[in-house]
Design a protein around this nucleic acid. Structure first.
Length: 543
RNA sequence: GCCCCGCUAGCUCAGUGGAUAGAGCAUCUGUCUUCUAAACAGAGGGUCGGGGGUUCGAAUCCCUCGCGGGGCACCA
């Protein structure tokens, strides 16, 4: 199903109706959105109020005229004018028809038209295990990818592996120190895992202890990085996060792209020398200059970023690059934007999504000091599904205060079970139906779906494409769990009607009625499954 | 000092300039002889941090102040 949702159809009808009123040129935003009060229907528009100035008429009159003339495609909704607003109510017939049209993957749309884009996320320095802050970045990035793939984009998922920067050098030096029974140097890494890495290196790299420091350290660094990358790969796999490419920094330097970028910026006049170092500075920007090549001749991280931009926009030809960063990198955004522009790329094609930090109630995390709760430990305690649901539930702009005590005690009251239970119930009832009715009709007569709780489920299903569209447009997957909750509520209510009154059960003596209700169950189950998939959360058939 | 994020119910948080601001948890009251009670029905609970402004209309946009978090390297 590649068409848009019913909201889009209502909007088209609204635009047509407004044209018929004689509005020329651009139509103002008519604020078509979900109605908040049941008596206002399902969608509401403030069209009368919005057009009052343009048409020089009373909002009530305008709204009334729109409601009179409007015709929503397929008879999906009826319109009613109410005090300057135009309210829309989805019709029962259309809702019933929708139920029979819903198949697995409902809500998928070709919004992206195959746009090739890269999402780079995670990309933590491979100098230690992922902690719970990183968990937010990898799950957010992964769900953004899932959304984009679901909406017709050609997505490449990338982890950029720093291997040659100051932090990883300190990391290598720390392993070297531990190998020789010494404490890590100032600014080094003190976690126990560094000692373990040293012992592993001793075993895997015979004779490493006898090499001089300047030979041993680079070997140890690369060895330790590879080990950490292996561990990171295993960790993200546990939370259903997938990558297409682990792009090593070394590869970038070998490609010579940073130098190509530097040469280009030199020609365009964006570089200057000062104090023996080479600086980037955008002439039209009052942002501070930024070092590209240090006075000691070594390039900075920024230099590799220049090449990395070329690698992606030119060498690999991505139309758009989405970066998912933790908010402590926010100061880097203007520089990346301005250097992207200086290299000749559209600043809008570099999309940077910042997410706020994850704090522990017990105290601050510090990777180098080795005091942190790892993502692995978190998954051990609460499970992958709860971890993903919990991270995704929050807007990226909100700091997560992670209460470990609460996380540990999270059991049945965890919201993830609410959604999964709805899915399990729907799955189970289909099994029950097949046992009670070995021969059900092939065709479902959806006109038998008449109860309000049945239509409420269908109504929620009608909203799903809107959620997909909004989440994609804003790259905000946190909208999905809220929708999932609403759908699960409608499902539980529908199901529970059968607990109160047995004639309202899905599986009843009447085969045709059973078949019709099963059709609704299937539609809801497919939609729940699809939404949970986008979150990376499993949809169990039994609980 | 400058920059970014937040401040909404007791707690944790949703809320694309629209009508009467919502959910979960917690609290309280009901509902199992069940197609799965990890559920359902209901109740209480609000100065949307303070103050200005913009307009038909502001939790939402602008200004300002306060509080909390994060960032301002020849670290990343």
């Amino acid at each position: 199903m590649l068409s848009g949702g019913v909201r889009e159809r209502v909007n088209e009808a609204l635009q047509d109706a407004v044209r018929k009123l004689g509005v020329q040129g651009e139509i103002p935003d008519l604020e078509l959105g979900r109605a908040k009060v049941p008596s206002h229907g399902d969608y509401a528009s403030s069209a009368g109020l919005k057009l009052s100035r343009v048409l020089r008429q009373d909002p009530k009159t305008i709204a009334a005229r729109i409601a009179e003339t409007i015709e929503v495609a397929e008879g999906a909704a009826t319109a009613e004018a109410d005090n300057g607003y135009v309210n829309f109510r989805l019709t029962g017939d259309w809702l019933r028809g929708l139920v029979s049209r819903i198949a697995p993957g409902y809500g998928a749309r070709d919004i992206g038209r195959g746009e090739r884009l890269q999402v780079e996320f995670g990309s933590v320095n491979p100098t230690g295990p992922l902690h719970i802050g990183h968990g937010r970045g990898v799950t957010l990035g992964d769900s953004i990818c899932r959304l984009l793939e679901f909406t017709g984009h050609s997505v490449q998922r990338e982890y950029y592996v720093n291997s040659d920067n100051t932090q990883t050098r300190r990391f290598g030096a720390s392993v070297y120190a531990r190998l020789h029974g010494l404490d890590p140097p100032e600014g080094g890494y003190t976690g126990d895992y560094v000692k373990e890495l040293a012992e592993m290196a001793r075993h895997d790299m015979p004779g490493i202890e006898d090499l001089p420091q300047d030979e041993a350290e680079p070997k140890l660094r690369m060895y330790a990085i590879d080990k950490m990358v292996e561990r990171i790969k295993a960790t993200v796999a546990r939370v259903n996060v997938r990558y297409d490419e682990w792009y090593y920094e070394n590869r970038l330097w070998e490609s010579g792209l940073p130098q190509v970028a530097i040469d280009r910026l030199r020609v365009s006049g964006h570089l200057k020398e000062r104090d023996g170092a080479l600086w980037f500075g955008d002439p039209g920007d009052d942002e501070e200059d930024r070092v590209v090549i240090r006075a000691n001749g070594q390039p900075t991280y920024f230099a590799s970023d220049l090449g990395y931009l070329l690698s992606r926009f030119e060498q690999r030809g991505y139309h758009r690059v989405v970066e998912v960063w933790a908010a402590d990198h926010h100061g880097y955004v203007p520089r990346m934007k301005s250097v992207a522009a200086a290299l000749g790329f559209e600043p809008q094609s570099l999309v940077i999504i910042l997410h706020q930090m994850v704090n522990l109630k017990e105290g601050k995390m510090s990777k180098r000091a080795g005091r942190f709760v790892t993502l692995d430990e978190l998954v051990d305690r609460v499970g992958s599904d709860a971890v993903r649901y919990f991270y995704l539930l929050r807007s990226p702009d909100t700091t997560i205060e992670f209460d470990l005590e609460l996380a540990v005690t999270q059991g049945n009251e965890n919201p993830v079970y609410y959604a999964q239970y709805a899915h399990a119930r729907l799955s189970n009832v289909e099994v029950t139906a097949s046992q009670r009715h070995p021969r059900l009709p092939d065709h479902a007569d959806v006109s038998l779906l008449v109860h309000p709780w049945e239509l409420d489920v269908a109504r929620q299903l009608a909203f799903w494409p809107d959620v997909v569209e909004d989440s994609t447009a804003l790259l905000e997957p946190h909208r999905i769990p809220y929708y999932v909750h609403d759908l699960a509520t409608a499902v539980h209510r529908f199901y529970h009607a059968g607990n109160a009154e047995s004639e309202h059960r899905v599986v009843v003596d009447d085969a045709a009625l059973t078949r019709a209700r099963l059709e609704l169950c299937r539609a809801a189950r497919h939609t729940l499954k699809t939404a949970l998939d986008l979150m990376g959360v499993s949809a169990p058939e039994r609980m």
